[in-house]
Nucleic acid binder design. Structure first.
Lengths: 220, 220
DNA sequence: ACAATAGTGTCTATCAGACAATATCCT
DNA sequence: AGGATATTGTCTGATAGACACTATTGT
């Protein structure tokens, strides 16, 4: 593949070095709560039965993003995402199998795409498993904390920056999504005015429900 | 060192994987300009004669931060820093020697610590070498762009967050440092009022120069 | 006195937070 | 009509930007 040799005649592969992995915190909204993170259950081999973030080792011929996408596809059957780098986790003892450095990634999927069984609701900043599993293995609890901060930071200024909602939505729907992401209630008029100049008018009106029909909006 | 074996009897080291490196963008102020970044000249072997960011491969038994510190010490004789993760650079072809993923780090040193010969001034967002070298090798130009954004972002809100100045300083000195970091002039009264409540009074007064003596301040 | 630098007063425009009024629908 | 929701008016307090004024030193 590559015939480079250093002055001592060795290739890069001749030197001992850490393994490189990716882990993905895929966030979404839980049907009956606020934020939730996708977990997958190791089926065989190392760590079997335990719930953890989907992850995989990075292969020679793929980028980090491709590895993250592969982990999502193989371990959670999720496709078509655009994961982003979050932070590198490199504690010497983070993996008992050996020295593994992991690049944590994060992404967001709309509500309802993932099955409820694989979602762990976020309480505070941490994920809470359903099987009574209090903590995630490796440093995945830390990754989830960073991912939650990341999305909450993004949802304080911009309207639904990662597309939890569909193409068009009412101001009410937008606010409710933001409240569930942030885990706190928002003032409706202040919220409206902050978001209004970041949205385009969809020239449509919601109908069917009781009350004055709501204007619908689109992301810019 | 580690006797883990997977179901097929192999250890982690039996799998092909990328090499892992760190590169460090060490920022400071240039004596006759604004921001500058530390470069080092490769002496022998690969890329000799070219100026680039100090970097090194990560060893099995060290963290990323330790590798970054080692690169600074070996390649630039700089000690005692606390480099921070900036971003991971993982383009498949970023290094002609083979597949190398690099975790870019960034840190800041006070003015006057580094020799002027190893400093490349920043113009706009890019580093400008002195030997007529227009571009840095690998993706180091991109790393510098990210590092410059990082420090400019930090210096827009907080007073000298990375200690370019000493323990105490006048408001004038603080403002001049911020102007050199940001590459733009700042309004003195607005700047003063924004920074004042983030500083402590050093209960000292500057003396010697002409004009009203200035109060001195300390970081919180 | 005068130049030079430090520090403050004040006006304006903008914006978030809060409360309340008005507008327009469904039943 | 009456309930429900959407949308806007308006007051208040905080703050950034801008300009100009006052304060205190060295020469």
């Amino acid at each position: 593949v590559n015939d480079y040799r250093d002055p001592s005649g060795r290739t890069l592969a001749d030197y001992a070095r850490p393994s490189l992995a990716v882990d993905v915190a895929l966030l979404t909204l839980h049907p009956s709560h606020g934020l939730a993170v996708l977990l997958h259950r190791a089926e065989e081999g190392f760590g079997s039965g335990q719930w953890s973030l989907p992850g995989t080792f990075v292969r020679l011929e793929e980028t980090l993003r491709e590895a993250a996408l592969r982990a999502l596809e193989v371990k959670a059957d999720v496709r078509g995402r655009t994961p982003q780098q979050l932070k590198v986790f490199d504690a010497l003892d983070r993996d008992v199998r050996g020295r593994v450095v992991s690049v944590a990634h994060v992404d967001v999927v709309p509500e309802g795409v993932l099955a409820e069984e694989v979602l762990a609701p976020i309480r505070g900043e941490r994920a809470v498993g359903h099987d009574g599993q209090k903590h995630l293995p490796f440093d995945h609890d830390l990754i989830v904390v960073e991912a939650v901060r990341w999305i909450r930071n993004a949802y304080t200024e911009a309207p639904d920056p990662y597309g939890l909602l569909g193409q068009t939505f009412s101001m009410y729907e937008l606010r409710k999504v933001h409240e569930r992401v942030l885990g706190e209630e928002l003032q409706k008029d202040t919220f409206r005015r902050k978001m209004l100049d970041q949205l385009s008018d969809a020239r449509e009106v919601s109908t069917g429900r009781v009350g004055k029909p709501a204007r619908l909006f689109t992301r810019r």
